[in-house]
Structure formats: C-alpha cells, structure tokens
C-alpha cells in the first residue's frame, strides 16, 4: 500500500463526492425555501434507483432514458410531499421533518409490496469496463457520475441565476416575505423546490442503481451522509453542500481505503461535530444559493 494507489483513491473520492453532492444539493435547496427538511430524502433516492430497475432492467429501456425519466418521476413525489406534508406544516420545521419520516415508511412499504423485499434487485451494468489511465482503474459506470453531477449542478446554477423562476426561487430563499410582496407565489416556489430536490435525489439513485444493490432500505445510509453534508456546508447553502460533499467524499474514501469504512463514517461524524462547535452555521452558512 503506498503512493501508487493515491490517484485511484482520489478518483474514487471524486466519484463519491459527486454522488453525495447530488443527494445533498436536493436537501439544501428544499431547506433553503421555507425550511422544508425531508427526513426521507434517502427514500426518494431509493425510488430513483427503482426507476432504473423497472424501466431499464424490467422494461428494457435504454439506461440513459431510464436515468432521465427518474428525474420527473421522483420530482413528482417531491411535489406530492410538498402538497401533503410541507404545506400544511409550514412554519414548523420539525413537524414537516417528522412527517416525512412517516412518508419514508410509506414509500418503503409500497416499493416492497410492488417489487418484493426478498433478494436485492441487481441491475446489469450498462457501461462495462473502466478507466486505465493515470494509474486509475475506475469503472465507467462510476466515472460517469462525475460529468452528470457537474452538468446537473451547473444546470441548477444556470436555472437559479438566469431563469425567471429560478431567480424567484432564490429571492424566496433569501426573503420569503419580500418576495411574496413582489408577487412571487410561495406555494409555487415550495413545490418547485421540492421538485428539484426530488429530481436530484432520483437521478442520484438512478445513477447508483447498477453499482449498489437495489432494495427498499438502500436510502438510509445516503440520507445520513446527506444530512451530515448539509450541516457541514451550512443548512441551506448549495455551494456549501457541494463543498462539504466533496470533503466528506474524500474523508470517507481515504479512511475506507486505508482503514475501514465504518471508521470513515465515524470520522465524518466527528468532523461534523467539530464544525458544529467551531462554526455552528456551517462552512458556507451565509452563502445562500
């Protein structure tokens, strides 16, 4: 074990950081607008993975199409969350958060009933093979996550800064009252934020489907990590979430490679505790969008 695995480990860390970013950005954007905190964000991720399982493995769609389809499908679930949970509990973060825990239970049961719990579903790998440049050997399947994440985060940035609805969303995150006075419809914005949030989680799950085992409880670990990421980054800060996602991606990968994955998680949590003590608002808590 030595320096020769360093490039490989960095590559793995970038992949992991990308997937964390994809999941955490969704949490951050929902929290930014009217503090919608989704306990079952991991279950949305899980549904995204099932989209690929159903559309690609069962129905034989092209993989890319299945991934693209996971965005609107899970976004729709996000909108349902907004309508049935976050809107009625608006103003009470904890109530919304706890209620979404119940929603997570419901999604798990529904998915189990439709597709069975039994054996984890395996999704055949659409891009076999892998890199063998720069002393790395990472499967194409994993490497593909990096450009998709970059594209999606860039797309989100473009949407938030250049498109009318996106600008409205940002205004709403900054100062909901003022934006309402300017004629922005709050309900539309919260629904939009949840749609984006769900879409990102869905695509994240879809991309991971061929890599991990697909089962109704697969979202749990990603949810924990995503929450740590948004705390470290600063609850509603999207740049913070991206930054923290890569920090944690590196921590987890390096500690797992050189020690053990549980230690990786532990050090990630310790890192979060330190951030809470030193800077309770998170690394980029003041940088909203």
């Amino acid at each position: 074990m030595g320096l020769d695995i360093l490039p490989q480990t960095i590559g793995n860390a970038l992949v992991l950081g990308s997937i964390y970013a994809m999941v955490a950005v969704g949490l951050a954007i929902a929290f930014g607008v009217m503090q919608m905190a989704n306990f079952s964000h991991g279950e949305l991720f899980m549904v995204g993975a099932y989209c690929v399982y159903v559309l690609y493995t069962l129905f034989g769609w092209p993989f890319e199409l299945a991934v693209i389809a996971s965005f609107p499908i899970v976004a729709l679930i996000g909108v349902i969350y907004e309508r049935l949970i976050f809107r009625p509990t608006r103003g009470n973060v904890l109530a919304g958060f706890m209620a979404t825990a119940g929603a997570g239970f419901i999604l798990q049961v529904l998915i189990s009933e439709w597709y069975g719990v039994g054996l984890p579903k395996s999704v055949q790998v659409p891009y076999p093979g892998g890199s063998d440049f720069l002393m790395t050997a990472i499967s194409w399947q994993r490497l593909a996550i990096i450009p998709v994440t970059i594209a999606m985060v860039f797309g989100l940035w473009y949407f938030l800064t250049k498109v009318k609805d996106g600008k409205a969303l940002r205004a709403c995150a900054q100062d909901p009252e003022a934006s309402v006075l300017q004629g922005i419809k709050l309900n539309k914005m919260t629904a939009l934020a949840m749609a984006i949030s769900g879409g990102f989680a869905g695509v994240g799950g879809a991309l991971m489907a061929p890599i991990v085992s697909v089962n109704p409880y697969m979202g749990h670990d990603y949810a924990i990590i995503a929450f740590i990421v948004v705390i470290v980054g600063g609850m509603s800060s999207i740049p913070g979430a991206v930054l923290a996602a890569f920090i944690l991606g590196f921590i987890h990968t390096f500690v797992s490679t050189f020690a053990d994955s549980v230690y990786g998680m532990m050090i990630g949590v310790l890192f979060m505790a330190i951030v809470l003590i030193v800077k309770p608002t998170g690394l980029l808590g003041n940088v909203k969008v």
């Binding site: 049935l84 949970i85 009625p88 919304g96 209620a99 239970f105 189990s112």
Partner: peptide, 19 residues
C-alpha cells in the same frame, strides 16, 4: 408488513391534523 405504512399514515395525519 404493512405496519410501517399504517404508522407512517398515523404520524403524518397527527402532525397535520392534530399538531
């Protein structure tokens, strides 16, 4: 096997309808 679903519904409805 439906228990989580039932409790999920109970949790959501009590938070929404009987805070």
């Amino acid at each position: 096997e439906f228990r989580p679903l039932i409790f999920g519904v109970i949790l959501i409805s009590s938070l929404v309808f009987m805070p």
